[in-house]
Design a protein around this nucleic acid. Structure first.
Length: 337
DNA sequence: AAACAGTGCAACCGCTCTGAC
DNA sequence: TGTCAGAGCGGTTGCACTGTT
C-alpha cells in the first residue's frame, strides 16, 4: 500500500503559527532537542503535523536564524553559488550562516531572479540573453564600415558613453565582422557603465551631437592606447572595476566618471573579453582585480557602499537598469520594425 | 477614502532522495 | 531488500502590506 502519510491531516492545524505554538515548539526542542518530528507534536501538545513542526523550526525558530534583509555580500554569494551549484538551496544555505534554504529560495525567486532577467541574464545558465537586446538587427553587417545612420539612431537610444566605448573598441581590430561583434558585446556591457554613472552622479550625461558623432567615427585610435587605457581603468581597488574613459575619451566636454561593479559583473566582462582575442590581454587585469583581497573598507563610491545602505529600489536600479534607454519622444519606432 | 493590483514572504504540498534499521 | 523518517526541492498558496487609480 505504499508509505503511510506522515501525519493524519484531519484535525491538524494549518496556516500561520501563533506565538503560543512557537513557544511550545521552542520549549520542547530546547528540552529534548530537534528530531523525532513525527511524535513531537503529540508530545509537545501541538495540533500540527511533524513536518510542519520541522519546517517551522528549521526555517524560523532555530536560534541561529538570521532575520532581516540580505546584504549585498550575501546576495553576491548567492548568485555566485547558484551559478556553480544550481538550485541546491541547502548547499547554498550551508555557505550562508543564519540563512535557510527556503529563505534563500524565496529571495532568489522574488528578487535576484527578476533582477537577473531585467539585466538580460538568464538566471538558470547565468549567461547573457542576447535575444533581449538583439542589437545586430540595428546594424548592417554587410556594410564595410559600421553603418553610420544606424549608429546615429543607436545614439538616440544609448548613452553616449556606450557608443564611445563601442567605437573605441571597434578600432582595435580591422576585421569588420569582428568589429561588429565586439561592438555589440560592449554596447551591452557598457550599459553597466552608464547605469552606475547615473547612480553616482544623479544626472544624465549629455548626448553628443550627430556632427560630433561623425568625427568620432572618422577618428582612428591606436589600439595599444585603447588597450592600455582600459587596462588602466581596471586598476580600481577593492575588487571593483574602475573605468575612467573620460580623460582619453573621444569627446572633450564631459566630466570624469568612475564606475564600479559588483564582482559578479566582472565575471561576465571577463568572460566576454576572453572570447575575443583582441581582449585577451585584459584578462590579467581582471584576474588581478578579482584576486584583490577585501581587506580594507571599500571606498565610498564602491558598489558595496552604494548598495548596502540603500533602498531596495536603489539596489534594483543599480543592476536592473542596464538596458534602460532614453527614448526621445520624436523616435519613430517603425524604423526598427 | 475605497477599490484594486502588485509584491514579498511564510508556509504548505507533493514528490524524490538518502540513510538507518 | 524493503520500510520508514528525515531531509531536500520545486512549485504554489494565502495573507499582509504597499502603491496606484
Amino acid at each position: 500500500m505504499g508509505r503511510s502519510p506522515c501525519c493524519d491531516k484531519n484535525g491538524l492545524k494549518k496556516g500561520p503559527w501563533t506565538t503560543e505554538e512557537d513557544t511550545k515548539l521552542i520549549q520542547y526542542v530546547q528540552a529534548n532537542g530537534p528530531g523525532n518530528w513525527r511524535s513531537l507534536p503529540k508530545n509537545a501538545g501541538l495540533q500540527r503535523c511533524g513536518k510542519s513542526c520541522r519546517l517551522r523550526w528549521t526555517n524560523y525558530l532555530r536560534p541561529d536564524i538570521k532575520r532581516g534583509r540580505f546584504s549585498f555580500e550575501e546576495e553576491e554569494t548567492i548568485i555566485q553559488l547558484h551559478s556553480a551549484l544550481g538550485n541546491k538551496w541547502s548547499a547554498i544555505a550551508a555557505r550562508l550562516p543564519g540563512r535557510t534554504d527556503n529563505e534563500i529560495k524565496n529571495y532568489w525567486n522574488t528578487h535576484i531572479r527578476k533582477r537577473l532577467l531585467r539585466m538580460g541574464i538568464d538566471p538558470v545558465t547565468h549567461t547573457r540573453r542576447l535575444d533581449l537586446l538583439d542589437l545586430s538587427s540595428l546594424i548592417n553587417n554587410n556594410s564595410p564600415q559600421l553603418n553610420l545612420s544606424n549608429l546615429i539612431r543607436l545614439q538616440t537610444l544609448l548613452n553616449p558613453d556606450a557608443l564611445r566605448l563601442a567605437l573605441s573598441l571597434s578600432s582595435l581590430n580591422n576585421n569588420n565582422n569582428q568589429n561588429t561583434e565586439v561592438l555589440l558585446q560592449n554596447l551591452q556591457e557598457n550599459q553597466l557603465l552608464n547605469n552606475s554613472h547615473q547612480l553616482q552622479n544623479h544626472h544624465q550625461a549629455p548626448f553628443i551631437q550627430p556632427n560630433q558623432f561623425e568625427n568620432i567615427i572618422n577618428q582612428q585610435i591606436p589600439s595599444n592606447l585603447t588597450t592600455s587605457l582600459i587596462q588602466n581603468q581596471m586598476q580600481g581597488n577593492m575588487g571593483h572595476y574602475s573605468a575612467n574613459f573620460q580623460e582619453n575619451s573621444l569627446t572633450p566636454t564631459t566630466t570624469t566618471t568612475t564606475t564600479t561593479f559588483p564582482s559578479y559583473c566582472y565575471d561576465q566582462m571577463k568572460g566576454d573579453f576572453s572570447e575575443n582575442s583582441s581582449f585577451q590581454s585584459m584578462n590579467n587585469s581582471f584576474d588581478s582585480v578579482l584576486s584583490t583581497p577585501m581587506s580594507s573598507p571599500p571606498p565610498l563610491n564602491s558598489a558595496s557602499a552604494l548598495l548596502n545602505g540603500s533602498t531596495e529600489d536603489e539596489r534594483n536600479s543599480f543592476c536592473s537598469d542596464l538596458f534602460k534607454f532614453e527614448i526621445p519622444e520624436s523616435l519613430n519606432f517603425d524604423d526598427f520594425m
